[in-house]
Design a protein around this nucleic acid. Sequence first.
DNA 1: GTAGGGTTAG
Length: 630
Amino acid sequence: MRKMTMRRAFSVSLLRSNPLLLSHSSGNSAVVALDNHYYFNSSSSSSCCVFTSTFHVYAISHFSTNPNPTHARLKQLLLEKSKSGFDKLDDALAVFDKMLHMKPLLPVINFNQLLAALVKMKEHSVTVSLFKDMCVKGIPVDLFTFNTAINCFCHLNRVDYAFSLLAGTIKRGFHPDVVTYTTLIRGLISQDNPAEAQLLFINLIRFKLIQPNVVTYTTIINGLCKRGHISTAVMLFRYMEKKGCKPNTVTYSTLIDCLCKLRLVDQALGLLHEMTKKGITPDVITYSSLIQGLCDFNRWQDVNQLLSEMNTRNISPDVHTFNILVDAYGKEGMINDAEDVIEFMIQRGQHPDVVTYNALMDGYCLRGEVDKALAVLETTMKRRGIVPNTRTYNILINGYCKKFKVDRAVDLFQQLPREGLSPTVYTYTTILQGYFLTGRHVEARKFFKEKMMLNKALTLDNFTCSILLHGLCQNRFVVEALSFFDTMLSAGLIPNICIYNTLIDGLSKNGHLEKARSLFDNLPLKGLRPDVKTYTMMIQAYCHDGLLNDANELFLKMEANGCLPDDVTYNTLIRGFFHNKKYNEAGVLMDEMCARGFSADASTASALLDLLKSQEQNPALLALRKKFLT
DNA sequence: GTAGGGTTAG
């Protein structure tokens, strides 16, 4: 509690005392149009000179050849919007429509700017459709246009169409460049097809089609990181340096983020140091990744140090950075601090978004204050015009289920379509879990059969199935569970170890030890390795049935198989020894457990106390009490 | 004017 209070004072006051921390970053330059005169504003005087002189040349040539001021204004608008996107999709479409009917047509570069604006707005399918329109209407296109469309297909997870378009590009006589191929590599990786991506990369180099650049390498490094191949990513990172391709801020940020997500935050800080030493400047994204990594470890002092370092370097935290802080405070139960961060960001002109409020609401739910979370949705978000998404509702639904208020959760579930939102597999699973949690297994099974199974749009995952299997087993519907397991298999879902753990536990607790044992023994055939939970569950099952030798043998075997027992495993086997009056064996195991840094849990301690009550004079038990309960 | 990096829930 004391730690929390100190942290609050420290962090929030630090934010307050650093006005620069939140000063608007206006970018390098902005264009302002006043009475047909154009001015460049720039935050740095040197770039101002460059831009101003460039613009003079542009302006003179432009006005001397094009007397139509509408064209000039439109072009200016397109230049601006290509960087920021339009505020509304309709605005972009209206401009496109106008452009289609202009005579003479604007040059292709202006059409490309419009498409770029749409990409900025993440309107990938609209971009593709406008691209098609252009092709049909015979508007000239160039390689930039094709690259943009290929990129959009990749974002829409249609890499197949992207490759068709590659063929189209070549057919039109364009030479696909490093941008085209880098885009396709990213598409393949994001569609979980790293082998094809690798093959494409190798062939591009082998046939000298392109020279990979820093973006190509960074794209692949990111793909490797996201798939958990950090060491390969680092190898490629060092390789690109050796090949004379210098990593930049994005390359370093990619690796730093990956290291942070793997909880290797000190190594990430090492890379920050390395890049700074090389003169590569970190930016707000680099710092945000590191702040997230440090928050995960509650390293608040380090977080504050980075915030003040950002301040020194004149890098302003943005909405992502603040969202990380709101989330971190919320997860720590420090809801007032989370609210303070939001208030602060608003003061500094940064607009909280749906992610901000979802994080805040989740913070309230974690404290059990679901009604307050609901008030955030109904009052604050509404007032500020922030549109909730399915996640917003999922957070509330989960909050109410955890408080055993499933009916309240179902109300919100039914509200979703009225808000124009669709429930996800997460929504359904939460409700299913809520029903089981409150013992309403009849409704749970009905909900699953009628709402989930019949919803064709719903793809069940292993998590959902494990909730159902657990609920069924817990309520002694073992036959139904096994039958559903068969359905899963025939539907092509590949069960993971969690599914098997749920089944093994459920079967053994319902008197089907032999069936559980057979599933366990067959795991290697399914290509699965038992984890510490699997072993512990089997050990518990053996102990429960008095098969102490089997339990002990498995305990020894698991370590030989490279799976270290944890505190639960030790406590389970120790209680097994207790129940079977093997007090000396229990004592030896307790010594071993303590030597490994684990201790007796509440259930083991109470089992020992119970034994002492009935056998006050048992010397072995007295020795155990002396050793472990003082 | 086209490609690469960061935020929330079971």
